[in-house]
């Protein structure tokens, strides 16, 4: 139980570092001077000390939504698969709930965008709703496929099962699911082919547009939320698609897991550097790919399996 709580705390702590790491890696690859890994914490503390400016046009939504954006994600953190063998994990929550919680967070984020009456917020929400609507089916199909391979839909149990019994007989299916999940990871976290969090150009903004009017603590909360979201996805990817290293003793297993997270982050960074931001109406092509891979994964599971 202590291990379980410790893991959650550590993952939350590691979240801002991961995002800064991606940024730094990208800058290295672009031959720029990289940002320090603790940049995330710096931003957070700076924002926390600032006063919060609230728009006159906004309503109660702006005052509560940031918390409601963060809290489902925090709740999700409790439901992730264990990273050390034998540790406690929550067994009573399945993948649907997790997608649901992520959607709940996105839902409030989108409302937040619309609350300030600014054109940017509306634009961001509109685009986000478009993207998340297309992400949803791919996500659920991928989960379905993975749960078939893991013999359980409960996400914690699935992670354990996969670690104990690697689905060798369904490698093709597993691979397809992995690809699909990786694309979803990119899309959900606003990484480059879908969104670019680093620019504030109205042509490309999605996530940033929604929070354009936030300052101070509210902004800090949202930033935290997005880093936690990344950690959730990365650790899901790590647990479900790289299910090894759980057998070691706790500290080593934990180090291995963190390495896996950084590996995912590197992968994302490399991927981001090598692609261009897609036009909003081209995004369905990418997500369509994810859907197709998810379908393929299911079909190969059924056809080749057993």
């Amino acid at each position: 139980m202590i291990l379980y709580l410790l893991t959650i705390v550590l993952l939350i702590l590691i979240a801002p570092i991961l995002l800064s790491y991606i940024k730094a890696t990208k800058m290295v690859l672009f031959f720029k001077r990289p940002v320090p890994l603790l940049q995330g914490y710096r931003n957070f503390s700076k924002l926390f000390s600032k006063e919060t400016i609230i728009s006159e046009e906004t309503s109660a939504i702006t005052r509560y939504a940031p918390f409601l954006v963060l809290s489902p994600l925090l709740v999700t953190m409790f439901f992730l698969p264990p990273i050390v063998g034998g540790a406690y994990y929550v067994s009573f929550v399945d993948a649907f709930t997790i997608t649901g919680l992520i959607s709940l967070s996105t839902f409030f984020l989108m409302l937040l965008g619309l609350d300030s009456a600014s054109a940017f917020g509306g634009m961001g929400s509109s685009r986000e709703s478009f993207i998340s609507a297309l992400v949803e089916p791919a996500m659920i199909l991928t989960i379905f496929s993975v749960s078939l391979m893991a013999d359980n839909l409960g996400i914690g149990q699935a992670g354990v099962n996969l670690a104990e019994h690697f689905p060798k007989e369904h490698m093709a299916s597993y691979l397809f699911a992995g690809i699909s999940f990786f694309i979803l990871l990119m899309a959900e976290n606003g990484r480059i082919p879908v969104d670019n969090t680093e620019t504030h150009l109205e042509l490309t903004m999605v996530h940033e547009a929604m929070i354009l009017d936030l300052t101070g603590v509210y902004l800090a909360i949202i930033e935290t939320a997005s880093s936690i979201k990344f950690v959730i996805f990365a650790s899901l990817f790590a647990s479900l698609f790289m299910p090894f290293g759980l057998d070691f003793i706790a500290p080593i297993a934990f180090v291995i897991f963190v390495l896996k997270l950084f590996f995912v982050a590197t992968l994302v960074a490399v991927f981001e550097v090598n692609t261009a931001k897609l036009r909003i109406f081209k995004i369905p092509n990418l997500l369509g790919l994810a859907i197709v891979f998810a379908f393929l994964s299911l079909i190969t599971f059924y056809v080749l399996g057993d």
């Binding site: 996105t106 839902f107 709703s129 998340s132 297309l134 089916p137 859907i291 379908f295």
Partner: peptide, 16 residues
């Protein structure tokens, strides 16, 4: 499953 999931996503968009 696909259409139900898609419906869910679009419903969120619609209610936002």
């Amino acid at each position: 499953i696909f259409s139900l999931a898609m419906t869910g996503g679009l419903a969120i968009a619609c209610f936002v």
